[in-house]
């Protein structure tokens, strides 16, 4: 490295850092708006233009019971969908990466298809499937509602789970299992003590991803829901946009943000602590 290169490199670093911070700012622009507008005192029923500061919206963060009900309903669906999707998607991933068998490549292709299907198409096909009954080829008659939403959410999560877990366990040395078995461990024990700890980060990532996908889904849910049934959070928001945009939406969004950030922060602190302890 020559002496003349150094200042240029430092300048380059500065430009890179500045640019990256600008990109982060871009990512946060709507978030700042959402949080700021939770303190807005809207002139009318649309909390879209700034008209004055107030703390009133925060006096009862859970005001607007419907909004909260919708949130709870969404969480319920997301928890169940991510659990089921993680189990069945994780099994697919393990089978694919652990075994060599006839048809593996075809299964890989199958897994990609739901990901390359636009959501609106997936939703419409599911809707048509759910309402097609007796006279048609199908033996499955589900009336739209909680079950159909759940089933659809699991479906679009499974591929994501399988792909994520597969990527995480790629290159994993399966002979470790053999070693454990050679040492006399029963298969279940091997899974619990050897396999599972190794795949757990991938499983966790996949579960979180599924949860996020499910709780945020609007396009598919809007087609497989029941008329007159309970709305999920995104459905509620979409409906609200048509009539009033209440600051309570911002308050609740801000709360969710705070909760998830603190969960994430405590997670990483715990991780850091554990790391330090294991190093000590």
């Amino acid at each position: 490295m020559t002496t003349t290169a150094r200042p240029r490199r430092r300048l380059g670093d500065l430009v890179l850092a500045g640019f990256s911070i600008l990109v982060l700012f871009y990512l946060f622009m709507p978030i700042i708006t959402i949080v700021a507008f939770s303190f807005n005192d809207p002139a009318g029923k649309f909390n879209l233009t700034w008209s004055g500061f107030t703390l009133a919206n925060w006096s009862d963060p859970f005001a607007g019971g419907d909004l909260l009900d919708a949130m709870v309903y969404s969480i319920k669906i997301a928890v169940m969908a991510s659990l089921v999707a993680t189990v069945i998607g994780g099994l697919v991933a393990l089978a694919l990466s652990r075994y060599r068998f006839r048809g593996g490549a075809l299964i890989n292709l199958f897994l990609v298809l739901p990901l390359t299907t636009p959501e609106v198409v997936l939703g419409a096909s599911l809707l048509n499937f759910f309402v097609a009954q007796d006279e048609r080829i199908l033996f499955f008659d589900v009336s739209r509602g909680f079950r159909t939403i759940l089933v659809s959410h699991i479906l679009f999560c499974v591929s994501f789970v399988a792909m994520t877990v597969k990527a995480r366990v790629r290159g994993f040395d399966w002979s470790l299992e053999d070693a454990a078995m050679d040492l006399g461990a029963p298969p279940l024990r091997v899974f619990a003590k050897v396999t599972f700890p190794l795949i757990v980060p991938g499983i966790l990532a996949a579960a979180l991803l599924s949860f996020a996908l499910s709780i945020d889904d609007y396009i598919i849910t809007t087609m497989v829901r029941d008329v007159g049934g309970e709305p999920t959070f995104p459905l509620y928001i979409a409906g609200a946009f048509q009539r009033e945009v209440s600051p309570q939406i911002n308050v609740l969004s801000t709360l969710i943000l705070i909760i998830s950030v603190s969960l994430m922060a405590s997670g990483s602190i715990l991780g850091a602590l554990r790391q330090r302890r294991s190093m000590a």
Binding site: P30, I31, I256, L257, V261, M264
Partner: peptide, 13 residues
């Protein structure tokens, strides 16, 4: 983090 808020809420923002 920004993606912890709902897609629709962000888009409305």
């Amino acid at each position: 983090v920004p993606f912890f808020t709902s897609y629709l809420v962000r888009t409305i923002a």
